[in-house]
Simulated assay, not measured.
Amino acid sequence: MTRMAFYGSSLVSSYWNGAATYYRGLIRALAAEGWDVTFHEPDVWDRQAHRDMDPPPWCRVNVYPGTSEGLECAASRAAAADVVVVASGIGHEDDALRRAVLDRAHPAATCIWWDVDAPATLAELRAQPLHPLRRDLPRFDAVLTYGGGDPVVRGYREMGAALCVPIYNALDPETHFPVDPDPRFEADLAFLGNRLPDREARVRSYFLDPAAAMPERCFLLGGSGWADVALPANVRALGHVGTGDHNAFNATPLAVLNIARDSMAEVGFSPATRVFEAAGAGACLITDAWEGIDRFLAPGSEVLVARDGRDVIELLSGLTRDRARQIGRAARARLLAGHTYAHRAREVGALLAGLRDHKRHKEVLS
């Protein structure tokens, strides 16, 4: 059994942690393929106080104190792993942790930098020639990313990465599936996302402005950080929505809206976890326009695409409950056929096996 040490933001809490469902789906699928995974996460950002799952049977979870001592202790456990993964956006001394893990990993281990926000990371690297990640990249055997397509692959290769492969979000059908409507989430259009500086303007354009223009319709806003934002009277804010409520949140409204962050919308090929969660629950998804959507869902029949807020108004105005159900069913069928985390885990497993074989071959030759 291959041992993996995975250092990330959090597996057990989705609080201010949009990558949680990505980690859960992927690691659960890797465990089903025979991987022995330990997830190391710091106790920071009040995430442990907002846990929405217990440590699962398919992965050990090491929650370490958000201190220098806690970081060093967690990093030392990399020495026992065959594959060591360090993710971006952990939230506590990320540069120090990355260096400490690389220093302590076994020389024969395969080391992976897993970037869950690659467009933003690459923008930082281009702006900062002395960024610590530039120094560390050559020590990783490969870079895996949350998405981004060819632009992200080219960007990381230009920065010195030996190999860069996007591993896209996917559907975990054991977690996201259709459920009965829940009165708490009745709405014509719902959006779930934390308030972030690089997405707030797009939320206003695609969600709040259409709501103001459609006072007869009901809009639902989920996510943290919106409490002090002036909202139209027909927008109901829920605050943080735990993952246990995601299926009902997605299955109940007439339609669910996806809004990409600025960098991901610009680069394209970066479907958010929300896309797969909503479609997996059978939701009729309206997404903002970004290049590559047709790689995952067919515009018009499996997803509705809006170029701006005016398109959102037009799409919502002409949407019937029957057509919404038809689109939701078609989207779920498409994802089950080719975009589940089982598909992604097989891809990752084959990639890592190839990297291990290549590394062993190099050691023999040297």
Rank of each mutant, 00 (worst) to 15 (best):
S9N: 14
W16S: 15
T21V: 14
T21H: 08
A29H: 02
E33I: 00
G34T: 02
E41Q: 15
E41G: 07
D43C: 12
V44M: 04
R47A: 01
Q48S: 08
D52C: 08
M53I: 09
D54L: 13
P55H: 09
P57R: 12
P57K: 10
V63Y: 03
V63E: 13
P65R: 00
P65V: 03
T67Y: 05
A75W: 08
S76P: 13
A81Q: 08
A81Y: 12
A81T: 10
D82E: 15
V83A: 04
V86R: 09
G89N: 15
I90L: 10
G91F: 07
L97S: 06
A105D: 11
A109Y: 02
T110K: 02
C111I: 08
C111G: 01
I112H: 02
W114Y: 14
W114V: 00
D117L: 06
A118T: 04
T121R: 12
P129W: 12
P129T: 05
L133T: 13
L137C: 07
R139S: 11
F140H: 09
E158D: 15
M159T: 01
G160V: 12
A162F: 04
C164I: 05
P166M: 03
L171K: 11
D172P: 11
E174L: 10
F177P: 07
D180E: 11
P181N: 09
P183G: 05
A187N: 05
A190M: 01
L192S: 10
N194C: 05
P197H: 11
R199A: 15
R204A: 10
S205K: 13
L208M: 11
D209C: 01
A213F: 00
L221S: 06
G222I: 03
S224G: 08
A233W: 05
A233L: 12
V235T: 06
A237S: 13
G239R: 07
V241N: 07
G242T: 08
N250Y: 13
L257S: 00
A260I: 00
G268E: 12
E277Y: 11
A278L: 12
G280H: 09
A281M: 08
A283D: 12
C284E: 08
C284M: 07
C284K: 10
L285P: 00
I286C: 00
D288V: 02
F296T: 07
G300R: 13
S301G: 09
V305E: 02
A306K: 02
R307T: 05
D308R: 01
R310C: 11
D311R: 00
D311P: 01
I313V: 15
E314G: 13
L315R: 03
L316K: 01
S317R: 09
G318C: 04
R323A: 05
R329K: 13
R329N: 09
A333P: 01
R334C: 06
H339C: 04
H339V: 03
Y341K: 03
H343Y: 11
H343A: 06
L352G: 04
A353M: 09
A353H: 14
D357Y: 12
R360C: 06
E363H: 06
V364N: 04
S366D: 11
